[in-house]
C-alpha cells in the first residue's frame, strides 16, 4: 500500500516542494507515493521533478478539481 501525501489547499509552489521532500525521504523498499492535489500547475511541475528523482507519474482526475498522482520508482533496467 502506497503512502499518501495530501497537499490540497496549498499555494504555489508548495505542492511540488512537499512532494520532492517526501520522495527524498522515501525508503528504498517503498515503490511508490500517492499525492493528492487541487493545484493544477503542479501537474506540470511534479512529473518533471519526480522524473529527475527517478519516478514515473500517472495522473488520475479525482473530480471536483482534484487530482491523484501516483509516483512509481523506475527500476534500473528501465533507465534511471
Amino acid at each position: 500500500m502506497a503512502d499518501t501525501l495530501d497537499v490540497r489547499g496549498e499555494i504555489c509552489p508548495y505542492p511540488m516542494m512537499r512532494t520532492v521532500t517526501a520522495l527524498k525521504k522515501l525508503s528504498k523498499e517503498d515503490r511508490s507515493l500517492e499525492v493528492v492535489t487541487d493545484h493544477a500547475p503542479a501537474l506540470d511541475t511534479i512529473p518533471t521533478q519526480a522524473a529527475r528523482l527517478g519516478f514515473r507519474t500517472d495522473i488520475e482526475e479525482a473530480g471536483g478539481s482534484e487530482w491523484r498522482l501516483v509516483l512509481t520508482r523506475i527500476d534500473g533496467e528501465e533507465g534511471a
Binding site: R8, G9, E10, D38, H39, G64, S65, E66
Partner: peptide, 11 residues
C-alpha cells in the same frame, strides 16, 4: 474547465 474550488490553506 471544472477547476473552480474554494481552496483553504491548512497551514
Amino acid at each position: 474547465a471544472g477547476e473552480f474550488k474554494v481552496r483553504l490553506p491548512r497551514r
